[in-house]
Amino acid sequence: MKKYLLSFALAFMSLTAFAQADYEKIMTEKIAKTETCKTAEEFQTLANDFQRIGSKESSKWLPPYYAAFSQIQKGRLMMRNGNMDLDETAAQADKYLAMAQNLAGADNAEIHLLRKMAASLRMMVNPAQRYMTDGAKATEELAIAEKLDPSNPRIALIKAEDVYFTPEQYGGSKTKGMELFKDALAKFNAYKPKTALDPNWGKTEAEYFLSMQAK
């Protein structure tokens, strides 16, 4: 009887290890696509892929996190293309972030940073009307993220973007923004993600802005 129990335990461990390896492989492939998607439709497809992974790996926070990130990247691309119909995209990001936070806990800086980004998307639909609501929410979430993880380079990157793109009459500055991009890049160069699947996006964006300054 003990022999059978041992064989069962070993078989179960092998299956668990195989499933984990399969999860890590597909997540690695999908995370890489967050850097190569070029259209809103591609980001939507990627968000759907992460949602499906999350439905199978219901105890892991990273699939819904990346589903939310894909939605936010979709929204940012829409905005750059002049499409300001961002409410539904922000709502989808918030839905996934609620799932991720339920699994990871309230003290996850990466999730609070994406909450900030989702709130900023929603504010941009009508900045004059939404600054005191969604704008305040974005500021609050960014402050929480920075308090939880002050050395996080993605927090520095988003702060740099905010300063760079805000008009000077509202406190923005392209010069100061560039200095903050330098700070972000220094933090990226020193940063080590906890695992191979943990958030590690943003460095190429900091490098892109600094390359513009060099031209």
Rank of each mutant, 00 (worst) to 15 (best):
P64E: 05
Y65T: 03
S59W: 08
F69C: 09
I72N: 07
S55M: 11
N48H: 10
Q51E: 14
R52G: 11
K74A: 06
R52T: 15
A68P: 02
L46E: 04
P64H: 04
Y65Q: 04
E57T: 10
S58Y: 09
F50E: 05
D49A: 14
F69Q: 13
Q73T: 11
Y65C: 02
F69L: 15
S59D: 11
S59E: 12
K74V: 00
A68L: 00
L46F: 05
P63V: 06
K56P: 07
P63Y: 08
Q51C: 11
Y65A: 05
S55Q: 14
S70G: 03
E57P: 01
G54L: 00
A68D: 05
W61T: 03
F50G: 02
T45E: 14
Q73M: 11
Q73V: 07
S55A: 14
F43V: 03
P64K: 02
T45K: 14
E57A: 15
Q51R: 12
A67G: 03
L62W: 09
E57V: 07
P63A: 07
E57S: 11
Q71S: 12
F43T: 06
I72S: 06
Q44M: 12
S70A: 13
S70D: 06
N48R: 10
Y65G: 01
R52V: 15
T45Q: 15
K74Y: 06
Y65M: 04
A67C: 02
S70M: 02
